[in-house]
């Protein structure tokens, strides 16, 4: 009576073929990973990022000197014992750069993840419910986006006080509207598809449709958004601490190192500013290279 399927006849061993299906899916995921891993931008980005992760985890073992309390010659230029020189307080710049990784790598990913979670929830409601909620939320999001990030951050930190938690909260809040906009447009397109209608015809609840049916289908852009946001978070955290609104002193944060020492550049003491600045740049670039690799693979599949 119908197209006879060769698989029908071979599919007698139910359990073994079920495993084969699950295997196929695992293979597909592996394939995606393989494609990402093969990209040169990913390899370079990951290498740099991993160096900083090692610094963050084992900084106290790697740093040749105590980043906070060591006192040597003031503003000594790079030598064999102090490869990155010392700063105006006589502290070893290399040790401080190594130790500074910890703060950034603690704050930036957490802030980015929280921002993405907030953005996904908000964007999901905006894109799926539409109507007045979307109109109101869209205007709020747009007004948020029109304000300068740094100004908002400074304002929040000066009012709420200087702590890692506040910085995380500020960066996450700043990212939420941006992510929400991306997620909203993905969800708008997705909820036009018939499977959403079909779920309604089965009597599914709105949260089920949003988070179980639609969410997995927009995970691609969300993953891309997350990697991109981590890069931005590193930069934003460094900017805030450069402006004195970062993690409180005496932490060896890269941004505050730059801001502590930048006025000695004119005196020729470039190293105490240059190396922390390079650390920020290298991490941002590394994360962006990873994001780039993830994006091109996710978008092409």
């Amino acid at each position: 009576m119908s197209e006879i399927d060769p698989a029908l006849n071979s599919g007698n061993a139910a359990s073994s073929s079920a495993a084969a299906g699950a295997n196929e899916r695992k293979l597909a995921r592996k394939e995606t990973w393989r494609l990402i891993r093969r990209r040169p931008s990913f390899i370079i980005g990951m290498t740099i990022a991993l160096i900083w992760v090692v610094c963050a985890l084992f900084g106290n073992l790697l740093a040749p000197f105590d980043p906070l309390n060591f006192r040597g010659d003031l503003n000594s230029s790079p030598t064999w014992s102090h490869p990155f020189g010392t700063d105006k307080g006589g502290r070893d710049v290399l040790s401080r750069v190594i130790a500074g990784a910890r703060d950034v790598l603690k704050i930036a990913p957490i802030a980015a993840i929280l921002g993405v979670i907030g953005g996904v929830i908000l964007g999901m409601f905006m894109g799926y419910l539409r109507g007045w909620f979307d109109s109101v939320a869209s205007r709020i999001v747009e007004s948020f986006l029109s304000l300068p990030v740094v100004l908002l951050g400074l304002l929040a930190v000066t009012t709420l006080g200087n702590s890692n938690v506040v910085v995380i909260g500020v960066v996450a809040t700043l990212f939420t509207p941006v992510v929400a906009r991306t997620v909203r447009s993905a969800v708008l397109a997705e909820s036009e598809l018939d499977y959403v209608e079909s779920a309604k015809l089965r009597g599914e609840s709105t949260p089920f449709i949003m988070f179980r049916e639609i969410l997995p289908n927009v995970s691609g852009p969300i993953v891309v958004e997350l990697t991109v946001r981590i890069g931005y978070a590193v930069f934003t955290v460094a900017t805030l601490s450069f402006l004195g609104a970062g993690p409180p002193p005496p932490s060896p944060d890269w941004g505050s190192q730059v801001s502590d020492n930048y006025n000695s550049i004119v005196s020729g003491y470039w190293w105490s500013t240059f190396f922390p600045a390079m650390a920020i740049a290298s991490l941002v670039i590394a994360v962006n290279l990873i994001a780039d690799a993830v994006q091109s693979v996710v978008e092409s599949s």
């Binding site: 299906g21 499977y195 079909s198 309604k200 997995p216 289908n217």
Partner: peptide, 29 residues
């Protein structure tokens, strides 16, 4: 509205769509 209907009414009305690609959630088995 389908979402206001009783369980029996929901079960009574079903649909087969034109485009199965769009009608099946592509992330679900």
């Amino acid at each position: 509205k389908a979402t206001d209907r009783r369980v029996e009414s929901i079960r009574a009305f079903q649909m087969v769509f034109q485009n199965a690609d769009s009608a099946l959630n592509r992330m679900w088995t």
